[in-house]
């Protein structure tokens, strides 16, 4: 089984505040800490577990600037076999469709049976997997939280649906799956693991290598244009409710009846 896992280097927003830059066109990147998109760790772990069971290889690919190489290497250190980096000034400003177009070109250079992405990344859209599958004319399932090999042509998969429920289906290979957190427990990667893969060469592809024209990708090819960024309005801080338990609860329920939708 040849597996390709698409990963992304993202600002570590869980631990850091994000600020809008002066002209409102992007974010302040100076003091930003980056890491791998959390969902992608689950996708890589799942790929490694499948390979360990049935054989084959796991290839990590990332679209991004040169700094994304560290993310590819970190994910390789989990136990992947190969890494690829897609970087080119022409890729900048790509929207979801642009990113999917780049990944499609990479998929077509290889011979993959299974393509995994994280369910979503920092812009929260969760769209690249579905778009990639459509462009490749492959079947697709999103929010996958269970994978079982039925035979070398078919997988049984579980998807998370509303209310934490699960939907089971069969899907034919080759296919694209977007992976939800909780499908496994991604292994820990230590410094030693990263050192082990430090000398492996990671091929870098630009637009020319992928046979893509500049107007299909990057800002030129993007149908989604960002106008500006702004910070959501914050509340005025909490009103502290004080007194005995009885008093607090009485006050709270009155407030909720007035504003909180309790009838």
């Amino acid at each position: 089984m040849e597996i390709l896992v698409c990963v992304k280097r993202v600002p570590d927003t869980a631990e850091n505040e994000i600020e809008v830059n002066k002209d409102g066109t992007g974010i302040e990147t100076d003091d930003l800490v980056y890491s791998v998109n959390e969902w992608d760790n689950y996708a890589v772990e799942e790929a490694i577990q499948i390979r360990d069971k049935v054989g084959g290889s796991v290839t990590i690919v990332s679209v991004g600037d040169e700094e994304s190489e560290e993310v590819v290497r970190r994910e390789m250190a989990m136990g992947a076999d190969n890494g690829l980096l897609l970087t080119d000034d022409a890729f900048e400003g790509s929207d979801g469709k642009g990113t999917a177009t780049l990944l499609k070109a990479v998929v077509e250079k290889g011979n993959y049976d299974l393509i995994l992405t994280g369910a979503q990344a920092d812009d929260g859209a969760g769209q690249v997997g579905g778009m990639l599958a459509t462009m490749l004319d492959m079947p697709y399932a999103s929010l996958v939280n269970a994978i079982e090999m039925l035979d070398d042509k078919k997988l049984k998969i579980g998807r998370e649906i509303e209310g934490g429920n699960q939907e089971m289906s069969e899907i034919e290979l080759p296919c694209v799956l977007s992976i939800q957190t909780g499908i496994n427990e991604p292994r820990y990667v230590g410094i030693r693991g990263i050192r082990k893969v430090a000398s492996i060469e990671i091929p870098v592809y630009g637009a020319g290598d992928l046979g893509l024209s500049a107007d299909a990708i990057g800002a030129a090819g993007a149908g989604v244009k960002r106008l500006d960024y702004f910070v959501p309005e914050l509340g005025e801080g909490a009103e502290m409710l004080e007194g005995s338990t009885e008093e607090i609860v009485e006050k709270l329920i009155e407030l909720l009846k007035a504003k909180g939708g309790i009838k």
């Binding site: 920092d122 929260g124 149908g223 989604v224 244009k225 960002r226 959501p232």
Partner: peptide
């Protein structure tokens, strides 16, 4: 149409327009 959508886990909002 201008759409407002959250990014970076809702820490920021972005206004976007679509072309097509």
């Amino acid at each position: 149409l201008t759409a407002t959508r959250p990014i970076y886990g809702g820490k920021l909002l972005a206004n976007v327009v679509l072309e097509g």
